[in-house]
Design a protein around this nucleic acid. Structure first.
Lengths: 156, 156
DNA sequence: ATCCCTGCAAAGGGTTTGCAGACGC
DNA sequence: GCGTCTGCAAACCCTTTGCAGGGAT
Protein backbone atom coordinates (compact mmCIF):
# COMPACT_ATOMS: atom_id res chain seq x y z
CA UNK A 1 0.00 0.00 0.00
CA UNK A 2 1.51 3.31 -1.07
CA UNK A 3 2.53 6.06 1.34
CA UNK A 4 0.15 8.46 -0.38
CA UNK A 5 -2.74 6.17 0.44
CA UNK A 6 -1.65 5.90 4.07
CA UNK A 7 -1.39 9.67 4.30
CA UNK A 8 -4.80 10.04 2.74
CA UNK A 9 -6.56 7.64 5.09
CA UNK A 10 -4.87 9.19 8.13
CA UNK A 11 -6.18 12.56 7.03
CA UNK A 12 -9.66 11.18 6.54
CA UNK A 13 -9.56 9.70 10.03
CA UNK A 14 -8.42 13.02 11.50
CA UNK A 15 -11.23 14.88 9.76
CA UNK A 16 -13.74 12.30 10.92
CA UNK A 17 -12.58 12.38 14.54
CA UNK A 18 -12.65 16.17 14.65
CA UNK A 19 -16.05 16.35 13.00
CA UNK A 20 -17.47 13.88 15.51
CA UNK A 21 -15.61 15.33 18.51
CA UNK A 22 -13.77 12.09 19.15
CA UNK A 23 -10.25 12.08 20.56
CA UNK A 24 -7.28 11.50 18.31
CA UNK A 25 -5.70 8.63 20.22
CA UNK A 26 -2.54 6.86 19.08
CA UNK A 27 -4.39 3.53 19.14
CA UNK A 28 -6.83 4.74 16.47
CA UNK A 29 -4.06 5.65 14.07
CA UNK A 30 -2.09 2.51 14.88
CA UNK A 31 -5.09 0.32 14.07
CA UNK A 32 -5.80 2.17 10.83
CA UNK A 33 -2.19 1.88 9.70
CA UNK A 34 -2.01 -1.79 10.58
CA UNK A 35 -5.10 -2.44 8.49
CA UNK A 36 -3.72 -0.47 5.54
CA UNK A 37 -0.40 -2.36 5.70
CA UNK A 38 -2.00 -5.57 4.50
CA UNK A 39 -4.12 -6.74 1.62
CA UNK A 40 -7.16 -8.97 1.62
CA UNK A 41 -9.68 -9.79 4.31
CA UNK A 42 -9.12 -10.06 8.04
CA UNK A 43 -11.06 -10.64 11.24
CA UNK A 44 -10.56 -9.04 14.65
CA UNK A 45 -8.51 -11.95 16.00
CA UNK A 46 -6.19 -11.78 12.99
CA UNK A 47 -5.70 -8.05 13.46
CA UNK A 48 -5.15 -8.57 17.18
CA UNK A 49 -2.41 -11.15 16.55
CA UNK A 50 -0.71 -8.93 13.97
CA UNK A 51 -0.48 -6.05 16.44
CA UNK A 52 0.44 -8.26 19.38
CA UNK A 53 3.28 -9.79 17.35
CA UNK A 54 4.65 -6.31 16.88
CA UNK A 55 4.59 -5.92 20.68
CA UNK A 56 1.90 -3.29 20.31
CA UNK A 57 -0.16 -3.09 23.49
CA UNK A 58 -3.77 -3.20 22.40
CA UNK A 59 -6.90 -4.97 23.59
CA UNK A 60 -9.56 -6.74 21.64
CA UNK A 61 -12.17 -4.38 23.10
CA UNK A 62 -10.35 -1.40 21.59
CA UNK A 63 -10.21 -3.14 18.23
CA UNK A 64 -13.93 -3.85 18.34
CA UNK A 65 -14.68 -0.27 19.39
CA UNK A 66 -12.51 1.39 16.82
CA UNK A 67 -13.30 -0.79 13.86
CA UNK A 68 -16.81 0.67 14.19
CA UNK A 69 -15.38 4.17 13.89
CA UNK A 70 -13.35 3.19 10.85
CA UNK A 71 -16.44 1.68 9.25
CA UNK A 72 -18.44 4.82 9.97
CA UNK A 73 -15.62 6.93 8.54
CA UNK A 74 -15.81 4.90 5.34
CA UNK A 75 -12.30 3.51 5.73
CA UNK A 76 -13.24 -0.10 6.42
CA UNK A 77 -16.02 -2.36 5.21
CA UNK A 78 -17.49 -5.20 7.22
CA UNK A 79 -18.66 -8.47 5.68
CA UNK A 80 -20.66 -11.13 7.44
CA UNK A 81 -19.96 -14.31 5.52
CA UNK A 82 -21.77 -16.43 8.07
CA UNK A 83 -22.19 -16.64 11.81
CA UNK A 84 -18.75 -16.29 13.38
CA UNK A 85 -17.37 -15.39 9.99
CA UNK A 86 -17.24 -11.60 10.23
CA UNK A 87 -14.42 -10.22 8.09
CA UNK A 88 -13.25 -6.72 7.29
CA UNK A 89 -11.33 -5.07 4.50
CA UNK A 90 -9.97 -1.69 3.47
CA UNK A 91 -12.53 0.57 1.83
CA UNK A 92 -10.53 3.56 0.64
CA UNK A 93 -10.10 3.66 -3.15
CA UNK A 94 -11.34 0.12 -3.31
CA UNK A 95 -13.63 -0.58 -6.24
CA UNK A 96 -17.05 -1.99 -5.42
CA UNK A 97 -16.97 -5.76 -5.59
CA UNK A 98 -18.64 -8.86 -4.21
CA UNK A 99 -17.42 -12.18 -2.90
CA UNK A 100 -17.27 -15.85 -3.66
CA UNK A 101 -16.45 -18.04 -0.66
CA UNK A 102 -14.96 -21.50 -1.19
CA UNK A 103 -17.02 -23.90 0.93
CA UNK A 104 -14.02 -26.23 1.21
CA UNK A 105 -11.21 -23.94 2.36
CA UNK A 106 -13.24 -20.78 3.15
CA UNK A 107 -10.91 -18.72 1.02
CA UNK A 108 -12.55 -15.52 -0.28
CA UNK A 109 -12.44 -14.40 -3.92
CA UNK A 110 -13.64 -11.13 -5.38
CA UNK A 111 -15.60 -10.38 -8.50
CA UNK A 112 -17.32 -7.41 -10.01
CA UNK A 113 -20.52 -7.11 -12.01
CA UNK A 114 -22.24 -3.84 -12.87
CA UNK A 115 -25.61 -5.56 -13.12
CA UNK A 116 -25.81 -5.78 -9.34
CA UNK A 117 -26.19 -2.00 -9.20
CA UNK A 118 -28.97 -2.19 -11.75
CA UNK A 119 -30.76 -4.78 -9.64
CA UNK A 120 -30.30 -2.56 -6.59
CA UNK A 121 -31.71 0.48 -8.36
CA UNK A 122 -34.75 -1.42 -9.59
CA UNK A 123 -35.39 -2.93 -6.15
CA UNK A 124 -35.21 0.48 -4.51
CA UNK A 125 -37.97 1.74 -6.81
CA UNK A 126 -40.02 -1.42 -6.50
CA UNK A 127 -40.06 -1.55 -2.69
CA UNK A 128 -39.71 2.19 -2.05
CA UNK A 129 -36.51 1.91 -0.02
CA UNK A 130 -33.12 3.59 -0.15
CA UNK A 131 -30.43 0.92 -0.11
CA UNK A 132 -27.54 1.79 2.22
CA UNK A 133 -25.36 -1.17 1.31
CA UNK A 134 -25.66 -4.62 -0.13
CA UNK A 135 -23.98 -7.97 0.25
CA UNK A 136 -23.80 -10.57 -2.49
CA UNK A 137 -22.02 -13.82 -1.69
CA UNK A 138 -21.62 -16.96 -3.74
CA UNK A 139 -20.82 -20.09 -1.76
CA UNK A 140 -19.08 -22.48 -4.10
CA UNK A 141 -16.85 -25.48 -4.63
CA UNK A 142 -13.82 -25.10 -6.86
CA UNK A 143 -13.88 -27.38 -9.89
CA UNK A 144 -10.43 -28.80 -9.15
CA UNK A 145 -12.04 -30.54 -6.17
CA UNK A 146 -14.41 -32.39 -8.43
CA UNK A 147 -11.77 -33.19 -11.02
CA UNK A 148 -8.73 -33.95 -8.88
CA UNK A 149 -10.41 -34.90 -5.64
CA UNK A 150 -8.93 -32.10 -3.58
CA UNK A 151 -9.42 -28.37 -3.17
CA UNK A 152 -6.63 -26.45 -4.87
CA UNK A 153 -6.53 -23.63 -2.35
CA UNK A 154 -4.51 -23.71 0.81
CA UNK A 155 -6.42 -24.76 3.93
CA UNK A 156 -6.27 -21.74 6.18
CA UNK B 1 -50.25 -23.90 3.55
CA UNK B 2 -52.22 -26.60 1.73
CA UNK B 3 -52.53 -30.17 2.96
CA UNK B 4 -51.04 -31.42 -0.30
CA UNK B 5 -47.88 -29.45 0.40
CA UNK B 6 -47.67 -30.81 3.94
CA UNK B 7 -48.10 -34.34 2.64
CA UNK B 8 -45.43 -33.73 0.02
CA UNK B 9 -42.82 -32.39 2.43
CA UNK B 10 -43.52 -35.20 4.90
CA UNK B 11 -42.89 -37.67 2.11
CA UNK B 12 -39.67 -35.91 1.14
CA UNK B 13 -38.48 -36.06 4.73
CA UNK B 14 -39.30 -39.75 4.96
CA UNK B 15 -37.36 -40.47 1.77
CA UNK B 16 -34.44 -38.41 3.01
CA UNK B 17 -34.31 -40.09 6.42
CA UNK B 18 -34.48 -43.56 4.89
CA UNK B 19 -31.84 -42.75 2.29
CA UNK B 20 -29.50 -41.45 4.99
CA UNK B 21 -30.34 -44.16 7.52
CA UNK B 22 -31.64 -41.67 10.03
CA UNK B 23 -34.47 -42.52 12.39
CA UNK B 24 -37.97 -41.33 11.72
CA UNK B 25 -38.65 -39.69 15.08
CA UNK B 26 -41.87 -37.90 15.89
CA UNK B 27 -39.91 -34.73 16.72
CA UNK B 28 -38.58 -34.49 13.17
CA UNK B 29 -42.05 -34.57 11.67
CA UNK B 30 -43.43 -32.23 14.33
CA UNK B 31 -40.73 -29.65 13.58
CA UNK B 32 -41.27 -29.90 9.84
CA UNK B 33 -45.02 -29.49 10.20
CA UNK B 34 -44.67 -26.56 12.56
CA UNK B 35 -42.42 -24.84 10.03
CA UNK B 36 -44.82 -25.50 7.18
CA UNK B 37 -47.76 -24.15 9.21
CA UNK B 38 -46.46 -20.59 9.03
CA UNK B 39 -45.35 -18.13 6.39
CA UNK B 40 -42.35 -15.84 6.33
CA UNK B 41 -39.04 -16.03 8.12
CA UNK B 42 -38.28 -17.39 11.57
CA UNK B 43 -35.37 -18.06 13.88
CA UNK B 44 -34.82 -20.97 16.25
CA UNK B 45 -36.09 -19.08 19.28
CA UNK B 46 -39.28 -18.19 17.44
CA UNK B 47 -39.83 -21.79 16.41
CA UNK B 48 -39.08 -22.94 19.96
CA UNK B 49 -41.70 -20.59 21.42
CA UNK B 50 -44.29 -21.65 18.85
CA UNK B 51 -43.88 -25.30 19.80
CA UNK B 52 -43.66 -24.65 23.52
CA UNK B 53 -46.88 -22.64 23.39
CA UNK B 54 -48.56 -25.72 21.97
CA UNK B 55 -47.24 -27.65 24.97
CA UNK B 56 -45.02 -29.62 22.66
CA UNK B 57 -42.04 -30.93 24.60
CA UNK B 58 -39.00 -30.09 22.54
CA UNK B 59 -35.53 -28.71 23.25
CA UNK B 60 -33.56 -26.05 21.46
CA UNK B 61 -30.77 -28.58 20.85
CA UNK B 62 -33.16 -30.81 18.93
CA UNK B 63 -34.31 -27.85 16.87
CA UNK B 64 -30.72 -26.92 16.02
CA UNK B 65 -29.89 -30.52 15.17
CA UNK B 66 -32.90 -31.14 13.00
CA UNK B 67 -32.99 -27.85 11.16
CA UNK B 68 -29.68 -29.01 9.67
CA UNK B 69 -31.36 -32.16 8.42
CA UNK B 70 -34.23 -30.18 6.93
CA UNK B 71 -31.76 -27.88 5.19
CA UNK B 72 -29.85 -30.85 3.82
CA UNK B 73 -33.11 -32.40 2.65
CA UNK B 74 -33.88 -29.20 0.75
CA UNK B 75 -36.96 -28.43 2.83
CA UNK B 76 -35.60 -25.36 4.62
CA UNK B 77 -33.24 -22.56 3.65
CA UNK B 78 -31.02 -20.72 6.07
CA UNK B 79 -30.21 -17.02 5.77
CA UNK B 80 -27.56 -15.19 7.73
CA UNK B 81 -28.67 -11.57 7.68
CA UNK B 82 -25.95 -10.56 10.13
CA UNK B 83 -24.34 -11.90 13.25
CA UNK B 84 -27.07 -13.16 15.55
CA UNK B 85 -29.55 -12.70 12.73
CA UNK B 86 -29.83 -16.22 11.39
CA UNK B 87 -33.27 -16.82 9.93
CA UNK B 88 -34.87 -19.74 8.16
CA UNK B 89 -37.73 -20.23 5.74
CA UNK B 90 -39.57 -22.96 3.90
CA UNK B 91 -37.85 -24.10 0.71
CA UNK B 92 -40.34 -26.46 -0.90
CA UNK B 93 -42.03 -25.01 -3.98
CA UNK B 94 -40.67 -21.62 -3.04
CA UNK B 95 -39.50 -19.55 -5.97
CA UNK B 96 -35.91 -18.33 -5.82
CA UNK B 97 -35.78 -14.85 -4.33
CA UNK B 98 -33.51 -12.51 -2.40
CA UNK B 99 -33.99 -10.16 0.53
CA UNK B 100 -34.11 -6.54 1.50
CA UNK B 101 -33.73 -5.90 5.23
CA UNK B 102 -35.04 -2.67 6.76
CA UNK B 103 -32.23 -1.24 8.88
CA UNK B 104 -34.77 0.50 11.10
CA UNK B 105 -37.20 -2.26 12.01
CA UNK B 106 -35.28 -5.29 10.68
CA UNK B 107 -38.33 -6.43 8.74
CA UNK B 108 -37.44 -8.64 5.77
CA UNK B 109 -38.83 -8.13 2.26
CA UNK B 110 -38.43 -10.37 -0.75
CA UNK B 111 -37.67 -9.56 -4.34
CA UNK B 112 -36.78 -11.45 -7.46
CA UNK B 113 -34.46 -10.63 -10.34
CA UNK B 114 -33.36 -13.08 -13.02
CA UNK B 115 -30.14 -11.16 -13.59
CA UNK B 116 -28.70 -12.55 -10.38
CA UNK B 117 -28.58 -15.99 -11.99
CA UNK B 118 -26.79 -14.54 -14.99
CA UNK B 119 -24.20 -12.97 -12.71
CA UNK B 120 -23.82 -16.29 -10.92
CA UNK B 121 -23.31 -18.18 -14.16
CA UNK B 122 -20.72 -15.72 -15.38
CA UNK B 123 -18.86 -15.76 -12.07
CA UNK B 124 -18.75 -19.54 -12.09
CA UNK B 125 -17.00 -19.50 -15.47
CA UNK B 126 -14.73 -16.62 -14.53
CA UNK B 127 -13.42 -18.12 -11.28
CA UNK B 128 -13.83 -21.81 -12.21
CA UNK B 129 -16.15 -22.65 -9.33
CA UNK B 130 -19.51 -24.36 -9.04
CA UNK B 131 -21.81 -22.18 -6.98
CA UNK B 132 -23.84 -24.17 -4.43
CA UNK B 133 -25.95 -21.27 -3.22
CA UNK B 134 -25.88 -17.52 -3.07
CA UNK B 135 -27.10 -14.79 -0.78
CA UNK B 136 -27.97 -11.30 -1.92
CA UNK B 137 -29.14 -8.84 0.72
CA UNK B 138 -29.96 -5.18 0.45
CA UNK B 139 -29.83 -3.25 3.73
CA UNK B 140 -32.05 -0.24 3.35
CA UNK B 141 -34.11 2.53 4.91
CA UNK B 142 -37.73 2.90 3.86
CA UNK B 143 -38.50 6.22 2.27
CA UNK B 144 -41.40 6.92 4.63
CA UNK B 145 -38.78 7.37 7.35
CA UNK B 146 -37.17 10.20 5.43
CA UNK B 147 -40.49 11.78 4.46
CA UNK B 148 -42.57 11.31 7.58
CA UNK B 149 -39.85 10.95 10.17
CA UNK B 150 -40.75 7.42 11.22
CA UNK B 151 -40.40 3.93 9.84
CA UNK B 152 -43.71 2.67 8.49
CA UNK B 153 -43.20 -0.94 9.42
CA UNK B 154 -44.06 -2.41 12.76
CA UNK B 155 -41.19 -2.61 15.25
CA UNK B 156 -40.79 -6.26 15.95
C1' DA C 1 -8.87 19.25 35.65
C1' DT C 2 -12.30 16.97 32.94
C1' DC C 3 -14.05 12.91 31.12
C1' DC C 4 -13.36 10.11 27.01
C1' DC C 5 -10.78 6.16 25.85
C1' DT C 6 -8.03 2.32 27.18
C1' DG C 7 -6.79 -2.61 28.90
C1' DC C 8 -8.44 -6.22 31.41
C1' DA C 9 -11.69 -9.48 32.81
C1' DA C 10 -16.27 -10.78 33.37
C1' DA C 11 -20.79 -11.02 31.28
C1' DG C 12 -23.78 -11.77 27.36
C1' DG C 13 -26.30 -14.40 23.78
C1' DG C 14 -26.88 -17.62 20.13
C1' DT C 15 -25.18 -22.20 19.23
C1' DT C 16 -22.86 -26.59 20.34
C1' DT C 17 -21.61 -30.32 23.29
C1' DG C 18 -21.83 -33.98 27.05
C1' DC C 19 -24.53 -37.04 29.24
C1' DA C 20 -28.15 -40.14 30.94
C1' DG C 21 -32.48 -41.75 29.63
C1' DA C 22 -35.92 -42.81 25.77
C1' DC C 23 -37.24 -44.89 21.70
C1' DG C 24 -36.87 -46.27 16.62
C1' DC C 25 -35.41 -50.23 14.43
C1' DG D 1 -31.43 -55.08 22.98
C1' DC D 2 -28.48 -51.98 20.32
C1' DG D 3 -27.35 -47.58 19.02
C1' DT D 4 -29.26 -43.21 17.76
C1' DC D 5 -31.94 -39.31 19.22
C1' DT D 6 -33.77 -36.58 22.85
C1' DG D 7 -34.07 -32.99 26.77
C1' DC D 8 -31.45 -30.61 29.86
C1' DA D 9 -27.76 -27.89 31.30
C1' DA D 10 -23.14 -26.64 30.95
C1' DA D 11 -19.63 -25.24 27.80
C1' DC D 12 -18.28 -22.57 23.87
C1' DC D 13 -16.88 -18.60 21.14
C1' DC D 14 -17.13 -14.13 19.49
C1' DT D 15 -18.53 -9.79 21.04
C1' DT D 16 -20.02 -6.38 24.45
C1' DT D 17 -19.94 -4.35 28.93
C1' DG D 18 -18.18 -2.69 33.59
C1' DC D 19 -14.63 -0.66 35.83
C1' DA D 20 -10.53 1.74 37.35
C1' DG D 21 -6.58 4.02 35.51
C1' DG D 22 -4.52 7.00 31.83
C1' DG D 23 -4.14 10.34 28.29
C1' DA D 24 -6.32 13.95 25.02
C1' DT D 25 -8.26 18.40 25.22
Amino acid sequence: MSQETKDAVNLILTDYLEAHKHRKTSERYAILNEIYSHDGHFDIEHLYMLMKNKKYRVSRATLYNNIEILIDAGLVIKHQFGKNMAQFEKAYKYKQHDHLICTDCEKVFEFCDPRIMQIQKMTEELLDFNVIHHSLNFFAKCRSLREKGHCEHVKK
